[in-house]
């Protein structure tokens, strides 16, 4: 088993992160460090804490204890020798701007066109000039291959297209990190690849990212490291080539065998 250790070059650093909802503990002391530009795959059964971990990193959930650092900045709280103090909503909102999040169910704004969705952050949060936001929005839509859908409303788009718009919306804030919470789990099989291709392109551009996924093939080929979680804990982590092909723990091996039963025979 690989224990997380503080690494001096870490860009995202989680130390002993605990998240409890009343008596239920969703994260039981998770420590992760991610270097700048690394892509991390989070795998594990449903309810293992993958989503909770991502939601804690961009402070949609407040952690119960531990620390989360992005660069030199502590996220969500200010921990000093005298204790841990939650940051004001204003500061939290500013921190969230820089941590992009893509949801399983897209969560586009249904009353806005694809372009307005993408420019919503720059316009409504950064109060950017409409013309400039629009120009940047069109560039991002082109980047995800949807320039011709700019004026379409979300419900006029397929699931894969909606998710690509959602990725563009997150990128519009020029985040330092991107978090993907099972971005292809709600998609038709045919549209999974188009979304994965976009995510791969974002990774190739040097973005630091964490992606909770059940797409083992994607984890194998597009992530630098893989973290296997179960019951709110990290069971195994390491280079994706190691964890996914030759896991050290029996539990991880079982999980992979169960998940890729058919696929495994081809490798």
């Amino acid at each position: 088993m690989t224990m997380a250790t503080d690494s001096p070059g870490a860009f995202l650093q989680l130390r002993d992160v605990v998240k409890a909802y009343g008596h239920y503990v969703a994260l039981k002391g998770v420590s992760v460090s991610v270097e700048k530009g690394q892509a991390i795959a989070l795998i594990g059964p449903s309810g293992s804490g993958k989503s909770t971990l991502l939601r804690c990193i961009n402070t949609l959930e407040t952690i119960s204890s531990g620390t989360i650092m992005v660069g030199d900045e502590e996220i969500g709280a200010n921990t000093t020798s005298s204790g841990r103090k939650k940051l004001s909503e204003k500061v939290l909102a500013r921190q969230r701007e820089e941590i992009g999040m893509v949801f399983q169910s897209f969560n586009l704004f249904p009353h806005m066109t694809a372009l307005d969705n993408v420019t919503s952050g720059p316009r409504l949060v950064r109060e950017q000039d409409a013309g400039k936001a629009r120009k940047q929005g069109m560039e991002l839509l082109a980047r995800v291959g949807l320039a011709d859908k700019a004026e379409n409303f979300p419900r006029q788009l397929s699931g894969g297209q909606q998710q690509r718009v959602a990725i563009a919306r997150a990128l519009a804030m020029q985040p330092r990190i991107m978090l993907f919470d099972e971005p292809t789990s709600a998609l038709d099989p045919e549209t999974v690849q188009e979304v994965l291709n976009v995510i791969r392109e974002v990774r190739d551009s040097g973005m630091t990212m964490l992606i909770a996924t059940h797409e083992m093939d994607f984890a194998r080929h597009a992530s630098d490291r893989t973290i296997f979680m179960e019951a709110g804990q990290i069971v195994e982590q390491g280079a994706s080539s190691k964890v996914l092909f030759d896991p050290e723990t029996e539990r991880c091996r079982q999980f992979l065998a169960g998940l890729t039963g058919v696929e495994a025979t081809t490798h």
Partner: peptide, 16 residues
Amino acid sequence: TAQWEASRAIGMRPLT
């Protein structure tokens, strides 16, 4: 509530 979350995730404040 997912609409609130998606908005918060890009840094919007409650009034916005």
